[in-house]
Structure formats: C-alpha cells, structure tokens
Design a binder for these strands. Structure first.
Lengths: 195, 195
DNA sequence: ACCTGAACACCGTTCAAGT
DNA sequence: ACCTGAACACCGTTCAAGT
C-alpha cells in the first residue's frame, strides 16, 4: 500500500518532509540523500527520479523552510494588526524563535550550500513573498501613511540585516558569555530592532 | 627534505594553510581531510597525529580566519585614528570585503559546522580579541568620553548584528535583485551602519 | 514512468605496522 | 614521536535491468 502510493507521486513530497525531519534531528551535517531514502523506505537511487541531484533536494527542503517561515511571520503579523503591541519586536522574536527551535533548518535556508536556489522558480516565488511581507510590516509600522519606495527598501534591508545578524550570531554562539549573562535575550533583541 | 621538515612540527601549520587554500578555491563543500593531506603530500591518516578529527582541523582553520579578520580590522582602525573619516563605515566595509573576497573562509568561520569551537582555547582567545577591538572602535567613535559598560555592550551587539547580517544576506544572495540594482552596495551598507 | 541493485569514486576514522 | 597502508562503514551518482 505504502510503496504503492509512491507510484502515484507522493514520493517527492515524502522526501522533502522526511528531509526536514532528519535535518531537525541530526542537523545539517547528518542529512544525507541515502539516509532520507532509507527512512522513507525506498532505494537510495529512487530520489533521482524526482531530483536531479542532492543539491536539488536540499533546495526543495530549503524552499519548504521558507514557506514555514512565511506562515509563521504572517500569522504573527495578522494577529497583531489590531492589538497595538510592538509588532516589530514580535516579528523579530518570531524570527529568532524559528531559528532557535530548529537550527538545522535555519542554517540550510540561509548558510547556503545552495548556490543555485535562484534557478528554482518555487524558491524565488516564496522568497519574494517573504520580501513583500517584510515590506508590508514596515509599511504598517509607519502609521503616518505610506513610505516612498526608496525609503521602504532601505528600511527593509536595515531591519532584516539586524534581526538576521543577531539571530545568526546567537545561533553560532558568537557573543561572549558576559554579554548574554548580563542581559536577557529579548531585551537585547529589542535594542537591536529599535532605531 | 620537505617530508623531513614535517617530522619537525611544520605539518600542523601546513595543514591549516593548505586548508585555507582549498577553502578559498573550492569552497566549504570541496574541503575534505583527504584532499588537504594529499595536497600537502602526506598520507590521509597523517593529520590525525595533529588533530583529533576533521572538526578539530576545521576549528583550527576557522581560528586562523578569525586572526586574519582581526589583522584586517585592526589595520583599518589604526590607520584611520587620525584621519577623521567615517570609521564605522570603513570598518563595516572591510568586514564585507573580507567576506566577499573569500566566501568559503567566512562561511566556515560563522556558519558553524563547528559546534565545539568554544572548547579550543586558541579560538576563544582570538574571539575575545575581536570583541575587544569592536568595543574599542565604538568607544573611539563616541568622541564625548567613554560609554558606560552596559551601553557599550548594547552598541557592540547592534553594530555587529547589522553588519554581519547584511554581509551574510549579501553573500547568500538573499536580497531581491531590484534592491541591489537600485542602490550601490556601499550606499546600502552606509544606511545599515548609520543609526 | 518509476524503482532496484550493483558498481564506481570518494569520504572520515581506526589500527597495526613501520621509522 | 610521527607517518603509512590496509581496512571499514559511509557517501553521491550512474546505469542497466526490472515492473
């Protein structure tokens, strides 16, 4: 039954979700094509019917990660539109949590062994959706009307750079322990997102 | 003669510098223990006399990269102390150039396949030297006297996060092409480091 | 059209053996 | 003390062969 359904096109999806599973359990170093195939219950050559090589599978897994990130951030943004909390901080916090709760997924998404993600149309689609969301959030936070396009782009780059850099450095344990002992993570993030 | 000198302790250093070479040529994916040993002209088991495993060699290579980054930034800082240009921008630019001119080295240093760098005393030493340099730079840029320790730490985290995030995202090609076409890289970086 | 199994070239790591 | 060569378990990729 199971091996039968794979003949109807589910294998591709199964490889992606199982890849995310292993990524979450064993990290980026522990993710191999053969291991994914083994766990799915298929021969190690089977994935090549759906992905041209390992890079292509990794790109698909990364794309799925970006979709999850979009869902997460969109939900936060949507639920806070009417509760006037500090939206920027909540979004940044969600970004950080997304990274911390599954470092392997985040590292695959951004610390790119993937050179040719830009060739996969599905990836560029979700990437631009994420950019659009980021811009919408910034636009919303400037309550005094819309920003000019130029300022919007600059603001997006500044915000994303800060939050992404802080998240990466926290994930890689690059800040000295004194820094982290003296302050709470959320407090530091607040300082990072505040202008 | 050459194989003789390896009996006198140069092999360890040779493995590190050859590792950096291969990293620069083939990227992080193309760096294997056996390839390093082969290029140095030694058997694939020889490195185990100097490093407990591949991780340990990678940690040593990463440490060497951090030393190079320190040298680069220190030189800039030292040479600009008396020419009152925009030091923060020049430092940030040097950081970005350091990453762009050798992405493999930068990725190894920060996109950590290295979990146990903190166990290597040489690494924690250079890491804290880099932190101290960062603090000195910030201190210098606040011409009105010294900052309190708390504000200094916060300022260091904010600056490093911004510059590191921007650098990583540029390196991984995460910004949409429209952003990059509409602005020059240095102009964007200037916006990122300006408060 | 999709999957399997054998084959190949590579990898990290260990260990007896050499000097 | 340091290096070698064989050995082992793993990997990505290809390809004939099966259904």
């Amino acid at each position: 039954m199971e091996s039968d359904t794979y003949h109807h096109g589910n294998l591709k999806k199964a490889l992606i979700t199982t890849g995310l599973e292993i990524l979450s359990e064993k990290g980026i170093e522990g993710l191999s094509l053969r291991k994914v195939a083994r766990r799915v219950g298929v021969s190690h050559a089977a994935p090549y019917n759906h992905f041209s090589d390992k890079q292509a599978l990794l790109a698909a897994i990364s794309t799925e990660g970006h979709k999850q990130l979009y869902e997460t951030l969109f939900r936060i943004f949507d639920s806070m539109k009417h509760a006037s909390e500090d939206i920027l901080l909540e979004i940044a916090w969600a970004y950080l949590q997304f990274a911390v709760e599954d470092p392997g997924r985040f590292k695959l998404m951004f610390s790119g062994a993937l050179d040719e993600e830009s060739k996969h149309p599905e990836f560029v689609e979700i990437a631009s959706k994420n950019i659009a969301l980021l811009e919408a959030i910034i636009q919303f936070c400037k309550e005094d009307g819309r920003l000019p396009a130029e300022a919007l782009e600059i603001a997006a780059i500044k915000l994303w750079s800060s939050v992404h850099g802080f998240t990466s450095l926290v994930l890689e344990d690059q800040f000295p322990p004194e820094y982290m002992q003296a302050h709470q993570l959320r407090e530091l993030l607040k300082a990072v997102v505040s202008p």
